[in-house]
Nucleic acid binder design. Structure first.
Lengths: 122, 122
DNA sequence: TATAGTCACTTGCATAATGCAAGTGACTTG
DNA sequence: CAAGTCACTTGCATTATGCAAGTGACTATA
């Protein structure tokens, strides 16, 4: 059991609606792309930066911070000398698989010129 | 057959990824709440405004415009004298049900104090 | 027929988020 | 000891969001 068993709490909820509250955490253009990259096997800051959408580095830093605070990802050093960090999904993060799967599915069915490049276990 | 059979085209795609492209249409704090309201049976401007999250009216107008342009919703007058408009989901919009369902499901399982208020056919 | 009210927005402006480029510090390799 | 990599931070311009008030078409009531 890792640290994903505690629920996220949102200080000033705009409503009790689960969709609204989920959007307060994931509802922007970048957050779910970082999570997509994690599902695709990426784990370091520079790997996230190298994705084709070219996320600005300040936004990447901000999203990694927010996702960590919300218990969706975990930051750990994977080597010393020099110390290098890996981010990975917690159970809470892994449980976003179905959300990503349905979004990807909707995209391929409804947006022209979209192509799933790699097969992910969502 | 209604007008939902044409795929959305995104002028300057940031990548061919279906998740990235879906986020370019739905990735913000408000768009999916309007769609949620439509799934919940709401259809007029004032009904959307009355939802507990209190969407600013300029943002509501903007989102209804964008969703219409993307073929996700349809605007039709439902009465003359005075003319009143109803928005409703196209087939493309209805196919977002699974996305909403998985987001709602993730919210109830991972965010404290979230409560699904009404049962929706997602 | 003046007055008030509703609906579906629009406008103006302040605040916050995003986007771009450059810089920083710890560390390693040649 | 110079150059490079990693994981960021900072400064600033641009864009989006949020709030309040206003608009115009229409109706219902006095």
């Amino acid at each position: 059991m890792n640290n994903t068993n505690k629920a996220i709490s949102i200080p000033d909820m705009r409503s009790p609606c689960p969709i609204a509250n989920t959007l307060d955490i994931l509802g922007d253009k970048w957050t779910l792309l970082v999570i997509r990259d994690l599902f695709a096997g990426k784990s370091t800051y520079s790997e996230f930066q190298s994705s084709p959408e070219k996320i600005p580095t300040n936004i990447l830093a901000n999203r990694l911070k927010r996702l960590t605070e919300n218990g969706i990802i975990l930051k750990t050093p994977y080597q010393e000398r020099p110390v290098r960090y890996a981010y990975r999904l917690t159970d809470k993060g892994l449980s976003l698989g179905p959300v990503l799967r349905e979004m990807a599915n909707w995209g391929v069915n409804n947006i022209a010129a979209t192509k799933a490049q790699i097969k992910m276990n969502l």
